[in-house]
Design a protein around this nucleic acid. Structure first.
Lengths: 95, 95
DNA sequence: TCGATATTTAGGCAAACATCTAAATATCGC
DNA sequence: GCGATATTTAGATGTTTGCCTAAATATCGA
């Protein structure tokens, strides 16, 4: 995991909201963008950051490009946070 | 918890290293800074960011200013990450 | 193939950020 | 109180970030 890239990616509220939206399942760039008041170009920039951090995956489906979460990196990140903040480490555990 | 402030604070590797160092217990600004190759002024800036995010507490002890972790906010943050990335948590529900 | 739709890339700009030096503030030991 | 030590504040500088508009690329449907 590119730890630094992941932290930087998560530092922006729009990108966190994108990840939240993707929790319900894969969505095209346009479907994601409908919830945000920024231009498609700016959205695309955010997608690039998330992709560079390996937090999302893309797949072209015809006319659309579909984004989905990369749960592997997200799990790695969660574990890393638990390591940085071990006070809560007993919480829940792994599955 | 000031969620955005916490994410921004954690986006910098020096600040994450500071938090790591504090896991062993409270340390003065100088003791923390000994591990980093930046000026005391820059260190102080990082402390200010961490403090603004409520991740650390300060207490003057005579000549020194002693920093310690604020475990409450760190636990809140960890829970929030588990909520953002529910795949690993045992309690993915909202709060 | 043409025109419409979806998305990214390129280029530019203002705001935010990390760092530095210099100066200010606070406390200690003498 | 004075000088030394510890830390913060102020001001400046170069870099990064996030957003925009305009243009490019890819795919679809007729």
């Amino acid at each position: 995991m590119k730890q630094q890239e992941v932290f930087k990616a998560l530092a922006d509220p729009t990108r966190r909201a994108i990840l939240k939206r993707l929790q319900g399942g894969a969505l095209s760039a346009g479907e994601i963008g409908a919830a945000f008041d920024i231009t498609p170009a700016s959205l695309s920039h955010h997608f690039a950051v998330l992709k560079h951090a390996d937090l999302v995956r893309t797949e072209r489906q015809g006319q659309y490009i579909v984004y989905s979460l990369n749960s592997t990196v997200m799990e790695d990140f969660t574990r890393m946070v638990l390591d940085l903040f071990p006070s809560i480490g007993s919480h829940g555990g792994k599955r």
